[in-house]
Amino acid sequence: MKEVSPAKAYALHLGVIALLFALSFVLPEYHHGLLARIMVLAVFAMGYNMLFGYVGLLSLGHAMFFSAGLYGAGLAVIHLGWSVPAAFAAGLACGALLALIIGVLALRTSGVAFMIVTMMFAQVFYLIILYFASWTGGDQGLVVPQSARVLVLGSTSLGLTNPTVRYMSALALFSIVLLVTLAVVRSRYGRVLVAIRENEERTKMLGYDTFSNKLAAVVVSGTICAASGAAYALLFGYVGSTFASVQYSILPLLWVLLGGAATTLGPLIGTLFMYYVVDITSGYTSAYLLIVGIALILLVLFFPKGILGTIRQRWLGWLP
């Protein structure tokens, strides 16, 4: 937020992207696939962070935006036979429209009521997916056929099932969203969002229509989450109602809290960390929700600023 060293911040973010690019060539197959998935889910976390970290609005319903993208893209391929870019756009559009509607309604409330209202809308969305099981596959979900997951660019066609194509597509989406997030939080608009988080009443008295600003943030956040969901459907070929359940509203909250709310790189770090903790422990126990639960409590009790938030507070004040 300070008017210092924009170059340093951009250099750091480009460095992270370059590192992820380089990792594609050295990682063993298993971790290569896992990291592709983590990057897509980190986009989900970044979308969540936009609202929770910067505007201070704690939603318990972001699974609906993720799954709006997931089903919007997935069903467009499965039922309508759309191409990959068109399906991706359909996913984004579903997410943006849903976010607009939910935002207009839910932003009439604040605090605890906002949390409960978003959770209830997400529950309705989840139940609707179950109710229209003939279309959505219900809790079994649907597989997006491999033959349809092909990206045609001019004369070359890239199969999204190919690990390298998949990794690079995930990285491309991740990079775009990361740089957009960085630009937004460093912009005038980002400053207004933080002001709303710190003191909404005061922000109003500086001439800002805080409702419109918050609504815009909900739509941006919802659209980013939908992008993550659409990419997930197209890259990993599965849509299922699990992704709309409450649990998938809690996970991005956990990832962001762990990595550091209101930090641009925190969502990636939180997602990466949590995914590997679950991956490693799942060798010993199937009770990964137990770890999620304990992590949530320990974070709010002892580590509310998360990994990057603490680093920023102690050592690197310039971190965006």
Partner: peptide, 23 residues
């Protein structure tokens, strides 16, 4: 405001930048 309500966690610069960018 009667009771001082500057944005305590933002810098003085950012506090003033908010109204300036508004105008």
């Amino acid at each position: 405001f009667q009771i001082t309500s500057v944005f305590a966690n933002l810098t003085a610069y950012d506090n003033v930048a908010l109204p300036v960018q508004r105008t």
